[in-house]
């Protein structure tokens, strides 16, 4: 249940941004979650709704932006979509791949007032 830690870290970023930018209410939070990032989205939604209680983000809607997984094959250099960390390169069948997208856990934007 590391989603609770992630939700707490998200709230911390939101509160720091509120102090820096002077907003008093968060209406929407857009968070990018990579397909390969080991985050259970429903658990994150639940944890977020719990930790924001009594804060500027109490009524915030959490919008999750799915980032598909993408890798570069170490052997043939081809780039391809992957959905798990053990997908082989579709071009040459090699398992040695570098993940180039899909690991993200990042707050991208907020709607505030």
């Amino acid at each position: 249940m590391h989603e609770l830690s992630l939700a707490e870290n998200m709230l911390q970023i939101i509160e720091e941004s509120a102090a820096e930018q002077g907003f008093i209410r968060v209406k929407t939070v857009w968070v990018e979650i990579g397909q390969l990032s080991c985050v259970e989205k429903d658990a994150l939604r639940f944890c977020f709704s719990t930790v924001v209680d009594g804060t500027v983000a109490q009524q915030a809607v959490l919008e999750i932006i799915d980032i598909p997984g993408r890798c570069r094959c170490v052997q043939c250099g081809c780039e391809a979509a992957i959905s798990t960390l053990y997908d082989a390169c579709p071009n040459c069948g090699c398992y040695a791949t570098d993940v180039i997208r899909g690991n993200e856990i990042r707050i991208s934007e907020m709607e505030v007032e």
């Binding site: 870290n9 970023i13 930018q21 856990i105 990042r106 707050i107 991208s108 934007e109 505030v112």
Partner: peptide
């Protein structure tokens, strides 16, 4: 809208 772009 405010851009944040911060890793959690």
């Amino acid at each position: 809208r405010v851009r944040i772009e911060r890793a959690v």
